[in-house]
Design a protein around this nucleic acid. Structure first.
Lengths: 207, 207
DNA sequence: ATAATTTTAGAACATTGGTTCCACTTTTGA
DNA sequence: TCAAAAGTGGAACCAATGTTCTAAAATTAT
């Protein structure tokens, strides 16, 4: 197996073999994602994940040391994606309302059509102490970033004054909950949902 | 054990013994609720529930035929409470915005300080087909009721026009998600959270 | 081509978790 | 008071689940 650091990141300047292994890990997650969506990460067994990825259960353990590490890999990757979107939104937009709309829309789209583990990033509590701490730290970074945009907007007079921490969590709640009810074969398209959410959730802050 | 219909409701005009048994079932749930909150219903074992309620695991089975029935009982009861709040709000308030604020506030408070199984009403998918169908039906009734208030408000011109179904789900997402982060020993009081949410989530609909 | 390395899977292990058995105690009602 | 009913718990059962063992197949490098 490709050498990994205990935090799941690749050691050294990733060689071709290493990148290939990483890609395989992602592919496994993508395959497993449909199962995750159906009944959550916790309720999805290693045998089910393996079979979704066309692997034997034993073989799955060649790519992931444990179910914990698999979950960690999912969540870590998801949070990286979300953090990227924050930076992108801040670069692209100027007004707080626009930045926020951008972030909400991206987060929604991410939940709805990004297949690898978007829904797994919900079950933080399923991780045991050492790994959970790392995820919580990263998740907090994401939350703080969004909260900052909101509280700055409030200070600048762009948003109505309120408890920025609560508003942030309300927004995340609405967004994360989409994984619970969204079905790809349903009536609403991801992009439509994303725009409606962005519109509604930002409007609640406007004066 | 007290005779129950297969749907968990009491048969006949509940006698004292029956009411007592029902109360005991509620008490068990209240005791288990803290465990549910900590790591969700799925991850909470029957032994843990039993010990939280000061019962032996075997004894717990005297009150609930199975973990499924226990979950069903939780969810059914929770939904009844939420439906009651809808009726109450519609009677008490006149304007759509006020009705909605009322409902949101009640739902939030219910999630945060009602102890019996508020958080268990989240894991619908953990129920197997026959029981799940009943819960889904009731949950849909609740969802429809709220959606109706919103879409009526839109038609009446009290709210901005948008996709009422999506807005409804966004609101429920924000509300239900509170169970994930709220800690009774945290800084924000349930009533404060409830008001902030009601204010924010309704404002997003106002013209 | 052949040795070394990577990748794969069948079978089994250990633990957990829902559940049942059965006997024992407590409460209820006549 | 005493039999019937309600309530209780210790121990064990059994299926499911995360995981490991071992060895074989496929790939890569020399």
């Amino acid at each position: 197996m490709v050498p990994l650091l205990n935090d799941g990141s690749i050691v050294g300047e990733s060689s071709r073999a290493e990148r290939k292994a990483l890609e395989k890990r992602r592919a496994i997650l993508r395959a497993a994602a449909v199962a995750f969506r159906k009944h959550g990460f916790l309720a999805t067994g290693m045998r089910e994940i393996a079979s979704a990825a066309d692997l034997s259960p034993a073989n799955l353990y060649y790519y992931f040391d444990s179910k914990q590490e698999l979950l960690y890999f999912c969540q870590d990757h998801s949070l990286d994606r979300l953090l990227e979107e924050v930076t992108a939104a801040k670069e692209r937009e100027r007004r707080p309302a626009d930045v926020l709309r951008q972030i909400i829309s991206a987060h929604a789209r991410f939940m709805l059509d990004e297949l690898d583990g978007a829904s797994a990033h919900l079950e933080v509590d399923a991780l045991a102490a050492p790994l959970r701490a790392r995820i919580v730290e990263k998740r907090d970074r994401y939350e703080q970033a969004v909260r900052k945009i909101i509280s700055n907007g409030m200070k600048a007079g762009a948003f109505v004054k309120s408890d920025a921490a609560l508003i942030t969590r309300a927004i995340f709640g609405a967004l994360n909950w989409t994984a619970r009810w969204y079905r790809p074969d349903g009536p609403a398209q991801p992009s439509v949902i994303a725009e409606a959410y962005a519109e509604y959730l930002v409007r609640g802050l406007l004066k």
